Simulated scan of single mutants.
Amino acid sequence: MYIMTDRLANVKQLVILFFVLCFSTSTAAQRLVTLEGKAQGTYYIIKYLSDDTTSLEHAVDSLFADIDQSLSLYKPGSLINRFNNGNRVQMDHHMQSVVKRSLEISKASNGAFDITVKPLVDIWGFGVRKPTVQKIPAADTLQRILQYVGYKYLQVHGQQLTKKKKGVEIDCNGIAQGYTSDVMGRLLEQKGIMNYLVDVGGELCSKGHNQHGKVWTVGIERPATDDNAYPVQALLALDNKAITTSGNYRRFFDQGGTRFAHSIDPISGEALHSNIISVTVIARDAITADGFDNALILMGVERGLSFISQHPAYGLEAYFIYKDEKGKIQERFSPGFEKLLIR
Rank of each mutant, 00 (worst) to 15 (best):
G304T: 04
S263P: 08
T217I: 01
G125C: 09
V128N: 13
K130F: 09
R251S: 15
A261R: 03
R251A: 15
L73A: 09
K47V: 00
I3G: 13
L32Q: 07
A261M: 11
V218K: 03
S278I: 01
G300K: 02
T34H: 08
T34W: 00
Q233V: 10
M1L: 09
Q255H: 13
N10Y: 15
V121P: 06
V20R: 03
I45P: 00
A271T: 02
L161E: 00
L120S: 14
L71S: 01
L71E: 10
K163M: 09
L73W: 02
M4A: 13
T288I: 12
G336L: 12
A176K: 10
T141W: 03
T25L: 08
G174E: 05
L120P: 07
E338H: 08
Y230L: 15
E221M: 13
Q155R: 15
S97L: 13
Y148K: 10
D171G: 07
G327H: 11
S102G: 14
E189W: 08
S97C: 14
Q143K: 14
I321E: 05
A261K: 06
C205A: 11
I277H: 07
K152W: 04
I123D: 03
M4V: 14
F253Y: 05
K163H: 01
V281G: 14
Q13C: 09
R332F: 09
N87A: 12
T116Y: 01
L305D: 05
N210C: 04
D182R: 04
F83S: 01
G158N: 06
L146S: 01
F252V: 02
A112D: 12
D52H: 00
V33P: 00
R101E: 13
Q177I: 02
S26P: 11
V121N: 02
G291D: 10
F253C: 06
G37S: 01
M194S: 15
A313K: 15
I175E: 05
A29S: 15
D61H: 03
G208H: 03
G336I: 08
D61A: 11
I297K: 02
M95R: 08
A59P: 00
E317N: 15
F252D: 02
Q155K: 12
N240W: 06
L21R: 10
V133L: 09
N173I: 05
K12P: 05
E221A: 08
F320Q: 01
I80W: 04
F64N: 05
T162S: 13
H94K: 09
K163C: 02
D285K: 09
E203L: 05
G257H: 13
N240M: 10
P119V: 08
T162K: 10
F19K: 14
S206D: 00
Y74P: 00
F113E: 03
I287H: 12
Y230T: 05
R222V: 15
M95W: 14
T53G: 02
